Simulated scan of single mutants.
Amino acid sequence: MKLLRIGPAGEEVPAALGDDGRVFALTGLTADIDGAFLATGGIDRARAALAAGALPELDPSGLRVGAPIVRPGKVVCIGLNYRDHAEETGAAIPGRPVVFMKDPSTVVGPCDRVLIPRGSVKTDWEVELAVVIGKEARYLADEDAAAACIAGYAISNDVSEREFQLEYSGQWDLGKSCETFNPLGPWLVTPDEAGDPQALGLRLAVNGESRQDGNTKNMIFDVAHIIWYLSQYMVLNPGDVINTGTPAGVALGLPGNPYLRDGDTVELTIDGLGTQRQTFSNA
């Protein structure tokens, strides 16, 4: 099942995408797609209502698509999780997941404008598989328990300002939490429809030129391990988002470091999860 939110920022309508491409409102079932909806069987209710023909159809023509969930409680990120990405940036292959946090307010719609921060000279892109948590994950016994905690998957652009991230502080937060730095969506795709999360192609192009072309099978730490690992150190709550890392091809690792500039467009695709497209402009 594919869930989405449509409308102006702050006024999004929760919706479901039918197999035939039609869009149906979930307003009779929930005020929004949030942690409470996910934790209380909301996806199953939406699936049943869609199958029964009980949802009113929406005309999405010309309407903005927002992030597929309301602002998450937290965005947890895994750094250097593809061997080729670690190698291109000159970093050691990690023995344990590299964990950092991103301000949840960075989450915006998949085609919203992304702002290059004032003073930035090294704004970079990162296509990533995002995992949305649907059930509390706390001290999970093993990796097999992780599957029951996943509400679905989405595309995430973990936009990064490399000078802020790597040169201004021992922490990565400054370069990861600038406004609009986490486009998410267009859909939240449930696990049954997304398929194997370790067999998804990820692609990103800048101004039409291919920059990243990877596959989640090449993650150092897979989705199940990441969720299990994080649950040993923090409670993952319904609606939380995990960015699982990016493959090679970021500006930081490319010859000449072709960082993003005002007017650049970035397009991201993950198999089965849709497409994002953003224009970058100066803040």
Rank of each mutant, 00 (worst) to 15 (best):
C77N: 04
K217E: 08
A194M: 03
A199C: 03
Q232F: 02
P186W: 10
G185H: 07
L3W: 05
P191G: 08
V70I: 09
V23Y: 02
V127W: 00
R211G: 07
D103W: 12
S105A: 15
D196M: 06
C149G: 04
A92E: 15
V76P: 04
A148Q: 14
E136Q: 13
R45A: 15
A147V: 10
L26Q: 05
V266T: 13
G185Y: 11
G79A: 11
D32M: 10
L4R: 12
T246Y: 02
V223I: 07
L252D: 10
V250F: 06
D173M: 05
R96L: 13
T190Q: 04
A67R: 09
E11L: 06
N157Q: 12
Y233R: 13
E163A: 12
D158W: 01
P247M: 04
A147H: 11
N81D: 04
L50C: 05
A91V: 03
V266P: 11
D222M: 05
L140I: 06
A36P: 00
V131P: 04
D173I: 01
P8A: 07
D271C: 00
D213R: 11
I78T: 02
V241D: 06
P60V: 07
A251N: 05
I33A: 09
P14D: 01
R138I: 09
C178Q: 13
D84C: 07
E87L: 14
P110L: 10
D240K: 06
P60S: 07
S281L: 10
Q198S: 01
P104T: 11
A154S: 15
A48F: 01
T216S: 03
R211H: 12
K2F: 00
G134K: 09
E179W: 09
Q171L: 05
P238Q: 14
